[in-house]
Design a protein around this nucleic acid. Structure first.
Lengths: 225, 225
DNA sequence: AGGACGGTTCGATTAGGATCGAACTATGAA
DNA sequence: TTCATAGTTCGATCCTAATCGAACCGTCCT
């Protein structure tokens, strides 16, 4: 009579409207703060906190503290797949769908975060370094691989100086517009510095926007493809 | 805040233990009467009736009256896929309500998922079809290759009939025990049917277990090696 | 230091829905 | 016809869990 894993337990987690709204807000893979998720769900912060604790206990989301903020993201892309599948079932019996659009395109594309690159291009940089196994690690703990170190030196980064500094060489930082990890730490700063030196990009005065030249953009794509 | 289809509505249907038990009982693709489902769920006939009405309204099950019996079955194999995927999440979160009984290993080895083969052997089948380039595709979008079509016909599958049906011929379904894809769709069903016909395997009464004979297992390994 | 703000915990309230008893309908068998 | 069985509908009860107010704990800022 009772066989197999307890699907009711996990399904009932998804079955509450507030939690479902939070999860759908997280479906793009980005991380959001507790407060933002509360707003998405249309509940108070207290209620949201309770929901988030349950989702975390159920293994559906992963939490990460940064400063006084708590960021939450889907635990895993499998969770996203299940949500997609559930939407498929929901569509056949009910409601339609809508999709919002982005804002502040330039800021979202590339900007400085303290002293390193953030925005879509920052996230892309991070993703490609990871995909090419130039950096590796889990969560925030990241390090350059052997090939990565060679690559960085070749790119003109003085790794020796970075390692002498007290600042960590590699660190994952959460992006506020894309809400995914990008590369911070000494290496992140050094790479952005090299982009300036190579005239691939420049700061736009009075803003945090990093403006890539056409050639710079192409060189960037080429170097990290 | 109001984006996408209402996944909470359908998820809350799956979130009730009684309904979840009914659905898991239906996962082998067979149709059961209201009374049988009530016993599976451990509730009285009245409550079962209420649950079944809700599941039907939600498009998860299909009802069919025959004499004084009401038969219920999963509305379609997508529902089965979602249930399998949910089981995957439940297992990962350690929410496995079931003590690993003696039947557990057999279930993991080979079982029916709606009407096709799942478990280790289902995944193995899928992998080998892919490795031999008999099927190809990305994600859930899969199709038979030319050599694959020839192979299927040779194996005794009536592809013409499959293509006339509205049901997709090939489809990937996520396996809860192995957490990888196995083959669903018309072809998946047809292959399992052939396994039965060839006496390679048979259903174990009252369970979802598919029991392969020794010779059947050898023939399976041989045919898809 | 102080204060502001984001997040969490605790407790009490409340609404939704799962459940069952009883009555009702329909089918099949005498 | 009468009876039995399968299923559904109705109403009442009861229990869980979502919710928010208020207080508490950190972190950041000046």
């Amino acid at each position: 009579m009772k066989s197999g894993p307890d699907i009711a337990a996990v399904a009932s987690l998804l079955g509450d409207p507030a939690r479902a709204n939070m999860l759908t807000a997280l479906m793009d893979g980005a991380a959001l703060t507790a407060g933002e998720l509360a707003r998405h769900a249309g509940v108070t912060a207290q209620t949201a906190s309770s929901h988030l604790a349950k989702l975390q206990a159920g293994g559906l989301i992963a939490a990460r503290k940064q400063g006084r903020h708590s960021y939450f993201a889907l635990a895993d892309e499998d969770v996203g797949s299940v949500l997609e599948a559930l939407m498929g079932l929901a569509v056949r019996a009910g409601l339609g769908r809508t999709r919002p659009g982005p804002k502040e395109p330039e800021l979202r594309l590339a900007r400085v975060c303290y002293d390193h690159l953030a925005g879509d291009m920052g996230v892309a940089l991070f993703d490609r370094l990871l995909a090419r196994k130039l950096i590796a690690g889990v969560g925030e703990e990241i390090a350059l691989t052997k090939t990565g170190s060679a690559f960085a030196e070749d790119f003109g980064v003085d790794l020796g100086a970075l390692e002498k500094a007290k600042r960590p060489v590699c660190k994952a930082c959460l992006d506020w517009s894309v809400r995914r990890s990008h590369l911070a730490g000494g290496l992140g700063a050094a790479l952005l510095q090299r982009f300036y030196e190579l005239k691939w990009a420049a700061r736009v005065e009075g803003t945090r926007i990093v403006s890539f030249t056409r050639k710079g953009r192409a060189a960037f794509e080429d170097a990290f493809a």
